[in-house]
Design a protein around this nucleic acid. Structure first.
Lengths: 344, 344
DNA sequence: CTGAAAGCGCTTACAG
DNA sequence: CTGAAAGCGCTTACAG
């Protein structure tokens, strides 16, 4: 592989001049610049990543810390890998995956990536309300940006869909259609248990909806096991006062839920209305569901910007260590589908 | 961050000794080893990735070259990111994502990653029958392993589900149930057009099935646009001699297909039987479809092993450059679901 | 069994 | 406007 020396020799200049041409951090005469550029193109020169990062302490890599997928594959993780890779590319960053599912300690891969300086910053997914990874990375002076809205909003830069408002808006849409008994199907219970921010805040929004909208809102946790989920739904629909509407924060389960309800003789929206909270198109298998979509591209762009800023700030002692952190809370946008009808 | 010097000082030895303890490439007395290990643990020392790779030309990183997703998000890409990250982790590798969807040149990110030595090898997804990336990487002496079965089997190590056998087996299962008119719904036409190996080989298997099994096998290309796909299906089902069975190599479309058929008054499997080719569970939204699943974990493990071997071989001049490449072709396994019934 | 030293390929003060 | 030189943190022949 060509080195900076090869380029310098081909262009008849010193290696340092090549470096300056490439970084643009020094005024260079037009002829010299052209000669160097020609040699770079001719040789297909790309600076060695290891040498560059050793010297400049910049890797141009963002680490993406995936959540442990206790319940198997998480489609949302795949979406963000794509979304982040694309957004990061626009900022000149590559994306490194850490903490593969199945490893023991949730933070082990991340810690290694940070201590070995495999990356300039980490983007954290599957964030918990009190996420231990935030303090761990701060102790290492390693910049982070979160996809999630933690309890301490100033602990680290973060972005998220406003899940609380999303839950509220979905119940409101149902309430506006006349429904007074709404079942809020929250995330799978593992996510509730570990305090994932989207899970906790969604449930919080459902509780607010009950208080503010004069509606009965029954919160039920979803399950990764469809049979168990359907048992829970059956219990509600078999009760004396069954719900007339569902708000579902487990969108991947919706096609199955619709089939299960149909098998019970319950039609959507004729008998029951339904809103999806935080879905993406693949989840719904082409069904025209009334929904609030998860804005993956917008969140990916936002978290990339936050991460890039955190990297800059870490290099600039003046700006680092302020006790507030920037964030971007994304308001929900309701998309009208065909699954909401007036209450019977 | 602690360096090897800090560890050496804390342990009272030379930096080189710390390096030897960590690499295990030299006999070290038990006391020295213990002292070094204690210092390493105490300081939380991890070797700097840049320095290590600069010196040893090993990065312990595998680049995953994603296909350009012309038709938007590809769930299969997400699956392999998880699968590969997990499999690579077991071999001590981290995974770097390159060529995010949306970038102009399919190979630009990969080329940069290779020339800058961001990784030790590349795993290529979305492989085409004659994939230009293979030659490009060979020209750079950059090891690759493919997820896909290219025309030239000896060009690079590769692994894949045997799509030809999969298509053949799916038609055979339908033929064995008495079906004589089978519609083979191939991949979306973009994949056919670019010559993706799974696409070409699936169609090849369908053609063989027609020749070998005395069945009419009509091959129809799927579409990313559901409306267009349903028009194509309607054309077949409205014909004088409609199919009685479907083999579908576009599993994500199956829930929608079933709904569309139901709307036409066609029940599966009462009126039409169906087999999915290369699905994974999320695709089918909980439907109990007769299917050949895409063995993501097995393929990820295989391609990781192939990549790791290619890295070793590249370091060993004796083994490199042989004119054959190892591969692993995975035979299909049919999973019985409830979507195949005897022909009417 | 252990250490001192060279050098991987860059970037960036220092010098002119 | 350009160059010579130091040094980032490792690994591994060379030496004892």
């Amino acid at each position: 592989m060509a080195t900076i020396k090869d380029v310098a020799q081909a262009a008849g200049v010193a290696p340092s001049t090549v470096s300056y041409v490439l970084s643009g951090s020094r005024k260079i005469s037009a002829e010299t610049r052209a000669a160097v550029q020609a040699a770079v193109d001719e040789l297909g020169y790309h600076p060695n990543a290891g040498a560059r990062s050793l010297r400049s302490t910049r890797t141009d890599v963002l680490a993406l810390a995936l959540p442990l997928s206790g319940t198997g594959y998480l489609p949302v993780g795949g979406r963000f890998m794509y979304g982040l890779s694309e957004a990061a590319g626009k900022h000149g960053y590559l994306v490194l995956l850490v903490t593969p599912p199945g490893s023991g300690d949730a933070g082990a891969g991340l810690e290694r990536a940070a201590r070995s300086r495999f990356a300039d910053a980490a983007v954290l997914m599957g964030v918990e309300m009190e996420d231990p990874r935030v303090a761990a990375m701060r102790a290492l002076d390693f910049p982070v940006a979160l996809i999630g809205h933690p309890a301490d909003e100033s602990a680290a830069p973060w972005t998220d869909l406003d899940w609380e408002e999303s839950a509220l808006a979905s119940v409101r849409a149902l309430r506006d259609a006349g429904h007074r008994r709404v079942l809020y199907l929250a995330t799978v219970e593992e996510d509730v248990g570990t305090g994932r921010t989207y899970s906790v805040r969604g449930i919080r929004g459902a509780a607010r909806a009950a208080a503010e909208l004069a509606a009965h809102v029954d919160v039920c946790h979803s399950s990764g096991d469809p049979a168990e989920l359907y048992r829970r739904l059956d219990a509600r629909f078999d009760s004396a006062d069954p719900p007339t509407a569902l708000a579902v924060q487990h969108p991947a389960a919706i096609p199955g839920i619709l089939r299960h309800l149909a098998a019970r003789g319950v039609q959507v929206p004729r008998d029951v209305s339904l809103v999806a909270v935080g879905s993406f198109p693949e989840d719904l298998g082409g069904l025209d569901v009334t929904r609030i979509e998860l804005p993956v591209a917008e969140m990916s762009a936002a978290v990339t910007r936050l991460a890039a800023e955190a990297v800059e700030a870490a290099g600039d002692p003046g700006r680092a260590g302020g006790d507030s952190a920037p964030h971007r809370l994304i308001p929900p946008r309701m998309i009208r589908g065909s699954t909401v009808a007036p209450a019977p």
